[in-house]
Design a protein around this nucleic acid. Sequence first.
DNA 1: TGATCCCGCGCG
DNA 2: AAAGCGCGCGGGATCA
Length: 631
Amino acid sequence: MRIIVADWETFFDSKEYTLKRMTTESYIRDPRFEPHGVAVKWEPALGAVWYRPDEFREVAMRTDWNDVFLIHHHAQFDGLIEIHHFGINPKAFGCTLAMARLLLGSHISVSLDSVRKHFGMEAKRTPYHLFDGKHWDELDDYAKKEIAAGACDEVESIWNLFNLLAKDFPQEEYPVVDTTIRMFTNPVLQGDVDLLAHIWEEEEKSKVGRMEALGVTEAQLQSAETFAGLLRDAGVEPQKKSGKKWDIYAFAKTDDFMRELLEDADDRVRALAEIRLGVKSTYMQTRAETWGYMASRGPMCVYLSYAGTGTLRPSGGDSTNFLNMKRQSQLRRALRAPDGWKLCPVDSSQIECRVLHYLAGGPDEPVVQKFRNHEDPYVDLASKFYQETIYKPKKDDPRKDEMEAKRGMGKQGRLMCGYGASGKQFKVTAKNGTYGPSVEISIEDADAFVVLYRKDNPSVCAPNSGYWAQAGRMLARLAGGPPVDWGPLHVRDHRIYLPGGQPMIYDSLEYYRPTEEEREALMEAGKYFKLDGWWRMRTRRGWKEMWGSKLTQNICEAVSRVVVTQAMNRITAMGYRVLNHPYDELLCLIPDEGKDEYHQAVLETEMRREVPWLPGLPLDCESIVDVIYKK
DNA sequence: TGATCCCGCGCG
DNA sequence: AAAGCGCGCGGGATCA
């Protein structure tokens, strides 16, 4: 396969038509889009050459792109230009931004300039100020030469960076990068413009109608202070709670004060609370809007940031998020397969729970055995807590609601308690209904649930010998000890390596000793156990504490991610397109040729296939086939 | 005015 | 002994 490196320079106008104010997708599919040209390095031994668009189109026509590995820095940008405007479709995309994201970490900038600096190269020389708002013909010869030279310099640096990064970049991650890029550059999903417009209008109508009925404005509802005034006028004194720096109003959906307002006897108070939450939840409307415009330009460009999280999962990007659509929502149903195709989302079942118990106790661990025997470990835990037989209810079961709620507690227990959750957090989450119907339990019962879980799962929780304790001891190794193999993982040089060689980065992990002032505050709060200090690390959101059960969570999430992406690689290698990757799910595209069950079986087989580096770990999955993106 | 912090909410 | 975690986006509040 030929390796080609390329970099596009395009017209922009810093006042309105610019990537700083637009999404990558809307910028490239805009009528104003106009490439200045592209720098191309046709093979490693040749220097980069600058082409004007027409010149490039001509050489591109004589190139067999089906034999090309095409490398960019941020391939979503250059790739969409090539595919949308030039009809070029390489065999595979490479992306130095994605490679840097995995190898350098999720909490730092991996812009080309930053990565060049990281490897001791000079800053970018492209003089963007010279061509702000100027079309090619309006540029003088000097500016044209500078643009061309800057682009060629970028291409040479991308090639150098590729070689530096390739030394450590795992082989199996190249197809993951390619699949992720193609979700954006080779869009397939159709957006239902009418439905998206309908969603927007219904939200708007409902909000405006309710605001008019109450005689309030959106601005009044949005601001906490003016909303507090509205409540006072209605005869209710708003409650406060402690924020990070000062007290804030308890106006969140999950605050008890707000919950009570929603059930207030006074019609106006109740309506005020409802509409405040309504105007605060803008995501339905704003996304219906962004997606509606996107759908009017063409098929949906699904932007995922490769390894956007510290645990190597993807994250959203390009001003939208295809990973957190509400279940059963209209928004999800506005995405559909093109004519002649169907969608098959395949969801790996309880993968993190399976991985946790396997890592903690191996293939014969009791919960792993339950999974192998196709028993439900959620009802098992719930039955122990409620001291009666809990089961997954059928549709017409007279105790359906009760059993769903109780099983939900088992699910919540398996997922939260496995990562060290407290009774306090357990109680709050049960009430929020995150894992099933909302359940109110006392703090005593919540604490009892946590105690029961910890006693019942010694491979995970036992002091000294359990996985949390091992992970806690591993922190010192991670922060600077000698290398060590740890089950399927390898700990070395501030990193945890997954079996494929993917690193989870803990560069900033350190043992922090509190200042005298902090020690006094800790004593006042009764937190004597923290007086000596604690492990902490830098994240996107500042310094965060680290401890054994939390590291356990990181590990289970990352291991599960690799299990799923390895399945994804097998699926794409068979020729299927994967259109979205919401964590444990792969959204696959299958031809509509009357063989739904066959394709479903093929995909499920790959999702269930045993992983050689976790021998004896039973995997399972669920899938459906539909034209619409349902779940 | 723009940048940044913080909170709340959606998903896993 | 004590601790669920991982994200991105929208929007307000605050700061330079």
